[in-house]
Amino acid sequence: MDIRKRRYALVIDSRKCINCKACVVACKAENRVPIGDFRNWINEERQGEYPKLRIDFEPEQCHHCEHPSCVRVCPTGASWQRKDGIVLVYADDCIGCRYCMIACPYDARYFDEESSTVGKCTLCSHRVDKGGIPACVETCPSKVRVFGDLDDPTSRIHELLATRRYHVKEPQTGNGPQLYYLV
């Protein structure tokens, strides 16, 4: 199918997350993310005091925004967005100015000291292009993440967003984030 007719996104059902961090490990192994850097992570939010308390886990990564501010500010065009929505860094053009890291409202990028360029979640585009799914999605034991094409009406992600309530993080930035959190 034509790449231009796809729009990849992730739906996240945070309530299923048990903070096992298998997604984080899978991502690091799959993408050889340097020690100390992360392409995905899990936010923890505590509420109340023992014994009356609750803790919420919320996986997060690059939101692959509709209007990514990181792409807009990049002076060389190294940060770019594919037609299917995936936001990538073309390392050969990255000069390491870190403007994109500052411009990302989700702090989803890191500076790779080894290559002196900026790294980020690629939504495992190398797997997706072969018809696969991102490593974090595949490995999740409690099926928190659902990956799919928003423009495919038969996809699970399409169905979830049509039938469940959801929110996105920091919509006021105008970036149009594409990580959908089910309520």
Partner: peptide, 26 residues
């Protein structure tokens, strides 16, 4: 000097991106 890869600074001059303040600034 502050760039991660300073030998690539010339790439700033190979692109003009009007949406990027840094590109215009260059």
């Amino acid at each position: 000097l502050d760039l991660g890869t300073m030998h690539r600074f010339y790439k700033l001059f190979l692109h003009f991106r009007w949406e990027s303040p840094m590109s215009i600034g260059t």
